[in-house]
Every structure is written in C-alpha cells, then in structure tokens.
C-alpha cells in the first residue's frame, strides 16, 4: 500500500514540475492556445505514465515468479556458456546436414536414399549441401580450437576433459552399481566419463572426417602430390568413420541425452545452458561441492554476485 502511495506522490511531483515548465514556456501565448497545448501535453504525460506503470508491474510479477521458482528448484548453474552453446548448435546443424547427404552415398540401395537425394533436388544439389555442412564443421573446429586456447572457460574445460584414473574407477563402479553389487554410485565432477567419451569421439571424428573429406573435396590438387591410392584410402576412411560417427551419435549420444528415462525426450540444456541445483547435485556432485567450497572460502566474491 505504502508503495502505491509513494508512486502517486511521485506522480504528483512530476506533474507539478511539468506544470512549472509549461507555464514558463507558454507564457508568451494567448491563454486559449496555451490551455489547449497544456491539455494535450497533460493527456500525453498521463498516458505515458500509465504505460510505464504497466510495464513495471509486469516485470515485478515476472521477478516474483522467478524468485518463487528458485525457491522450489534451487539456484541455476550455468553449465554451458553462450559461446559453447553456439558451437554446439553449429556442429549439430552441420553434422545433421552431412549425415543426411552423405549416408545415401554409402547406402545407395537403401529405400530412403533415393528419396533423400531427391529431397535436395538431385545429387548435384546434395553434394553442394554436403560441402556447406563441411564448411560449417570446419568453422566449428577452428572456433572450438580458438575457444580452447583463448578463453578461460575453454582452457579449464579442456583440462577437465582429459581422461584420468578416476574415470576408469567410475566405469568399474558404475557397472557394479548397475549389476546391483553395490549401492554406491560414482560421483562425477564437471565431466563424467560418458561425456568425456562423447567429447573425444567428436574430436577424433572431426579430425578424420575433415582430413579425409578435404582429400576428396580437392582430389585433383591432392593428387599433384599423392598417388591415387591415397585418395582411395581417404575415401574408405571417410566412409567408415562416417558410419562410426553416426552410430556413436545415434546410440551413445542420443541415449545419454535423449532416450535416457531421466531426460526423455531431451532437455533444453543445449539452448539455455543451465542446470538446476538438484541436477547439479545429482549429476555433477563433485563440481557442485567445489563451487560451494569456493564460495565458502571466498565470501566477499560470493557476496558481490
């Protein structure tokens, strides 16, 4: 209530100020004209004030809702920053394009192949789309490399991605847990062995696919220096690695982020990049504890946030 009174008082003060300003500016005009102008301005100010109040009220409501939600779900933790999410989007768009234009070449007898090639309006077009996808993947690779080298988050994540003994222990423990030998579950840090595998699979896949793909793309130039059987080997590699990458995505990545009963049919993590406190505790307990410990150890920084 008090808030509303304050607002009304503020409004009156503003009105008085405007009146004073108007009186000064309009003093030279005949009183009739001055009144008309004054009326017009008063109406406009009134409208403007009302609009502003409506917007404020709406944003207050939203804030209140989010506060409520945060109490329910706990704090939100940014897992993937905007830069990383952008890289992921570029990559999955390019990989989807590459798979749907590439697989029909590996399996020309498959019933859908002809349809998929036809969708692009023939093989001339689908090979162009494949090269567009390739360009995007190369861009992604360069972007990610620079991200890893130049940004603090990138360098930190890259180090955390390196597999260690703990991952081997986690795998063993997880298997024993699945089999019911132990109720204990591995406690993951920022990246579990599942995610590390996913990451390094992409790394390996990109190196092989881009390398062999460039051989095939610029075969005549490559054959200025290398014999034809090098191209044949690149062709075989490109074709086989494509199948491996597709299977890794469809089985491993899709299960772990889409078909896993906890996540089906998938989360929006790739879009907003945030995890709830509950998810953090559940999936990355060591990272959560580390963040909490850091906050406790450095209270001023936390207070500043």
């Amino acid at each position: 209530m008090a808030e509303k009174d304050q607002r009304i008082a503020d409004g009156e003060a503003v009105e008085k100020e405007i009146e004073a300003a108007l009186a000064e500016r309009l003093s030279g005009l005949p009183s009739e004209q001055a009144d008309a102008v004054r009326d017009k301005i008063r109406r406009r100010v009134q409208e403007e004030v009302e609009r502003e109040l409506r917007i404020r009220a709406a944003s207050d409501r939203k804030e209140a809702r989010e506060k409520e939600k945060q109490v329910e779900e706990g704090e939100k933790f940014v897992r993937f920053n905007r830069n990383f999410r952008f890289q992921h989007m570029v990559m999955f768009t390019s990989v989807i394009l590459l798979i749907i234009t590439g697989m029909p070449l590996k399996f020309p007898d498959f019933v859908l192949s002809r349809f998929v090639i036809g969708f692009w309006g023939g093989i001339q077009n689908s090979t162009i789309v494949h090269r567009i996808g390739a360009g995007m993947l190369i861009y992604f690779m360069v972007h990610h490399f620079l991200y890893t080298v130049l940004t603090r988050d990138g360098r930190r994540d890259f180090v955390l991605m390196i597999p260690g003994l703990k991952d081997a222990r986690d795998i063993a423990l997880n298997v024993r847990h699945f089999l019911g030998k132990t109720s204990e579950r591995p406690r993951f840090g920022r990246f579990s062995y599942i995610e590390k595998f996913d990451y390094w699979a992409v790394y390996w896949g990109c190196v092989i696919m881009i390398g062999s793909g460039l051989f095939l793309w610029f075969e005549t130039d490559v054959m200025q220096f290398l014999p034809k059987y090098a191209i044949d080997m690149a062709h075989e590699m490109h074709s086989d690695e494509a199948l491996l990458a597709t299977l890794a995505i469809v089985i491993w990545h899709f299960y772990n982020v889409h078909f896993n009963p906890d996540r089906f049919p998938g989360t929006l993590l790739w879009w907003h990049g945030r995890l709830t406190e509950h998810e953090m505790k559940e999936e990355h307990p060591l990272e959560y504890e580390e963040i909490m410990a850091r906050r406790a150890g450095k209270p001023p920084e936390v207070a500043g946030q």
Binding site: Y229, M233, E236, M237, D240, L247, A248, W252, Y255
Partner: peptide
C-alpha cells in the same frame, strides 16, 4: 591400404557398438 583401413574400422566399429549397447 584400403583393405587395412576397412579391417580396422570393421573391428573398431563392432567393438564400440558392442560397448555402447
């Protein structure tokens, strides 16, 4: 060369798919 790559991938893909599954 091509034969070796094909053999490698046949084994590699089979092993990985078995592990995934």
């Amino acid at each position: 060369g091509v034969f070796a790559i094909r053999m490698f991938y046949i084994i590699f893909i089979s092993a990985l798919v078995v592990l995934f599954v």
